[in-house]
């Protein structure tokens, strides 16, 4: 840039930052504009996920085959994302599985502290393949010191009259001694 025959591009050097706290916004210490959008959606679920949710209402975990890729998929979908073909043949899976990975969570979405941490993770559901194949859920009836990858777990269902066709019809997964 020293040479005078070059076009100069000018820019501010090292612009400094300023500390800001959320109380500064609340107390209107800084000028700001506030808006609460009124935005709501109601998503259609589609045929495959609807059938899965109906299954949950009946206390069943359903899977569907992709025969071409030799997959038994859960949560089910109407097409296989690997071969791009349609899926076919519904199967009822067991409500047991293995912890694939987990985390012990101490914060809520706004980063407030939760005293009793939430155990959350991914369960590989028995019978579905190839591993890992399953979904995310809570863990219960175990302490944060007991939980580990590879642990066997079983679904704890809500009572039948409280189920509404949602992933939360399973309350959580608990330790499971059987095979």
């Amino acid at each position: 840039m020293e040479k005078s025959n070059k076009k100069e591009i000018t820019y501010p050097k090292n612009p400094a930052g300023t500390h800001l706290r959320s109380s500064d916004i609340r107390n209107k210490v800084i000028t700001h504009s506030w808006w609460e959008p009124e935005i709501q959606y109601a998503w259609s679920i589609g045929p495959a996920m609807s059938k899965f949710l109906h299954g949950l209402k009946e206390g069943k975990i359903l899977g569907i085959h992709c025969h071409k890729c030799k997959r038994l998929i859960t949560p089910p979908r109407s097409f296989c994302e690997y071969c791009y073909g349609p899926t076919d043949t519904w199967v009822e899976l067991k409500d047991t599985g293995t912890i694939n990975t987990y985390s012990i969570s101490y914060l809520d979405p706004n980063a407030n502290r939760i005293e009793d941490p939430i155990l959350i993770g991914v369960i590989s559901i028995d019978g579905a393949y190839p591993k890992p194949m399953g979904f995310m859920h809570y863990f219960g009836e175990m302490s944060k010191d007991e939980i580990k990858i590879g642990m066997r777990v079983k679904a704890v269902w809500k009572p039948e009259n409280e189920r509404e066709g949602a992933i939360t019809d399973i309350k959580y997964f608990k330790p499971y001694g059987g095979d």
């Binding site: 840039m1 070059k6 076009k7 949560p75 994302e81 694939n100 890992p132 194949m133």
Partner: peptide
């Protein structure tokens, strides 16, 4: 060369996306 004698070249870019269904794959 109108701007600099010492350009830094962008030699390559790449981008890629995996399946939405992350609970069905190794992490």
């Amino acid at each position: 060369r109108q701007y600099t004698d010492d350009p830094v070249w962008v030699d390559g870019v790449g981008w890629n996306i995996d399946s939405t269904m992350w609970t069905n794959r190794d992490l």
